[in-house]
Simulated assay, not measured.
Amino acid sequence: MSKLVLVTVTHAFDGRTVLRDVSLVTQPGEMVALVGPSGSGKSTLAAIAAGILRPQSGRVMRLYQRHGMVFQQSRLLPWETARGNIAFPLLMDGMNKAEATARAEEAALAVALLPSDLDKMPDQLSGGMRARVAIARALAVAPDFLIFDEPFAALDPALRRRMQDLVIDLSARFGFGGLFITHDLSEAARVADRIAVLDRKGDGIIGALTPEGTPGARREADIFAFVQREMTGNPLLADLVNVDERALDYDCACDTLGPRRCC
């Protein structure tokens, strides 16, 4: 079962609550997108789901064997080649170098990296190639659940779409479920089976949307129509475009792995 269950998860930084009573269940094999405005606590929830943060209260049940995570930035080790970055979690898990290298090269092939790409250092790779390496690193551990924390936010629109298509293809091929964090409803409607909406102040999941069809089979015109309809007529999404992050009443301290910023 590739299933994630969050039960009344609450978390605070420096005494300020950023998530309160958040409950979410993903079904086996289901890709759920979590949308919400900047500062609503999406990245904090992703870190809790991945076990990077421990919630102050609530329960996290990971009903799967192993998960991988793709972060907002690629977070590649600058002193390692692309191959070394993909193999790194396997080596840290005790796998011998030969087997880890072979597994890394299989994962690289799955995300359409060329053999010549694997000897390059991170600063020799484009943004899209770094994103592919980061996804391959997550795939290398053979996960049955993947957590994506706005991994394509810094890419240009055309490249974002290619990366979204890659996630859709990989999910179908390998059958993993996942949690995909994004503030972009169009991205959510492309990659996810179901879309959960987080309250603008992290006060729980306020509702869910289910686009017609399945990821990869939805026409672009249908995705566009869905987004236009929901953004203009669904009160659940009012804060997705209207919220002013300066009005949030807590510090932007939810990125535990980088600079302080809103999540």
Rank of each mutant, 00 (worst) to 15 (best):
A158P: 00
V133Y: 07
L198R: 08
S171K: 15
D21K: 08
A110D: 10
A112Y: 10
T10A: 11
A140W: 10
L198Y: 03
D156N: 13
I195W: 03
G258E: 10
I181C: 13
E99K: 14
V167G: 00
T232R: 15
G41P: 03
A138H: 09
G41L: 02
G68C: 07
S126F: 13
E245N: 04
C252L: 10
D165T: 02
T101L: 06
A49N: 02
Q27S: 05
G127N: 06
A102D: 05
M1C: 00
G41T: 05
T10K: 00
V227E: 12
L159N: 00
E230N: 13
P151C: 00
R218H: 11
L53D: 04
N85K: 14
G84P: 09
M92L: 14
G68A: 05
M95I: 11
L139W: 14
T17A: 13
D169F: 02
F226E: 06
I223K: 03
R194C: 10
V60W: 09
E150L: 11
L118K: 02
A217L: 09
A12H: 08
P115G: 08
A112M: 09
I223C: 09
G202M: 09
L114C: 01
G202P: 04
D165L: 12
A153N: 05
E105I: 08
T17S: 13
F13D: 04
I223S: 10
A188C: 01
S2N: 11
D222T: 04
D119I: 13
A131E: 05
L185P: 02
Q124E: 15
D255I: 07
L109Y: 07
G29P: 03
L248C: 01
L24C: 07
V18I: 15
L198M: 10
L34N: 02
T210P: 00
T256Q: 09
P215S: 04
D165I: 01
S186L: 01
M163L: 06
P55H: 07
A253Y: 11
E30A: 13
R137C: 07
A154P: 03
K97M: 05
G204E: 13
C263S: 13
V243A: 15
Y250M: 06
P215N: 03
G178E: 05
D21L: 01
M231L: 15
L90V: 02
L114S: 15
V197E: 07
R229A: 15
T8C: 09
L240E: 01
